[in-house]
């Protein structure tokens, strides 16, 4: 079996065979459910499309937080527990290690995300939303989740332990999220660059409203590629230390 899928499968099974993965899964579903009940389904009259937009708005937050928590152990724990030597001594490249770990964590995050599907169906029961908006919203969540998992993987490759990985990942994520705020305080062309780099504001919101822009998909793909490449370089550099 290809080493990347072997590592991804092991990572997925680690989440499913330990309390760790189940706790994250249950907490995310619980918070999503509570937020859906508290904000999306309010007494105020709303169009179904607005309710769905609200759902994708708060789901993005839980997806990002879950992505960070899932990734903090990816490489840092291997280093902490001494099992990194298994991967380093195997006839596989650092890029395969990083890709396998990324796919495993992202795959599990997508399982959690897929389990929230009952909420759009509830909206569909009491109103009418387009399947295209649901599909676009979930594509947005998948893209944002992939970017977050890639950022978390990079943080985990740098950190000596899981806690440090979570903090580092959090700082990187918040910095990328706040790009839109910084763009308003700066002048062109820097403001344009910062606005483009912002992880959420410009690139995620169209998905919530049912719009799929190639530019946004390219952006998230680039973020994933860049952070996974940096993670690979970190693993390669560590061999020389």
């Amino acid at each position: 079996m290809n080493a990347v899928f072997l590592l991804a499968r092991r990572e997925m099974s680690t989440y499913l065979n330990t309390w760790w993965g189940w706790v994250i899964l249950l907490v995310v579903l619980l918070i999503d459910g509570l937020l859906f009940n508290a904000f999306a389904i309010s007494n105020k009259p709303q169009y179904s499309a607005e309710v769905l937009e609200s759902f994708f708005y708060f789901s993005s937050g839980t997806t990002m937080i879950a992505g960070l928590i899932l990734t903090m152990k990816l490489l840092a724990q291997e280093r902490e527990s001494g099992t990194m030597v298994l991967l380093e001594s195997a006839p596989i490249s650092e890029a395969q290690v990083v890709s396998g770990k990324f796919l495993g964590a992202w795959g599990f995050l997508m399982v959690i995300t897929a389990l929230t599907l009952y909420m759009p169906f509830l909206i569909q029961l009491n109103g009418k939303v387009s399947w295209a908006q649901i599909g676009a919203g979930y594509l947005g969540l998948a893209s944002l989740g992939a970017a977050t998992v890639a950022i978390g993987t990079f943080a985990s490759s740098l950190a000596k332990n899981q806690v440090l990985a979570a903090i580092l990942g959090g700082v990187m994520l918040v910095t990328m999220l706040l790009g839109w705020m910084l763009s308003r305080q700066t002048e062109a062309p820097i403001s344009g660059v910062l606005a483009y780099l912002a992880l959420y504001d410009r690139h995620y919101q169209p998905f919530m409203r049912g719009r799929i822009n190639t530019e946004d998909l390219v952006y998230y793909g680039s973020v994933v590629f860049a952070f996974l490449l940096m993670s690979t370089r970190v693993l390669q550099a560590r061999r020389w230390q």
Binding site: M1, R10, T14, T83, V85, L86, A90
Partner: peptide, 27 residues
């Protein structure tokens, strides 16, 4: 090469055979 450090690198949540199958496939 087969390398065993002083502290064996093991995924302790796995069973012996699951772990050996994983390591074998990885190699």
């Amino acid at each position: 090469i087969g390398f065993l450090p002083e502290t064996p690198p093991l995924y302790t949540e796995q069973t012996v055979t699951d772990f050996l199958r994983f390591v074998g496939s990885l190699r």
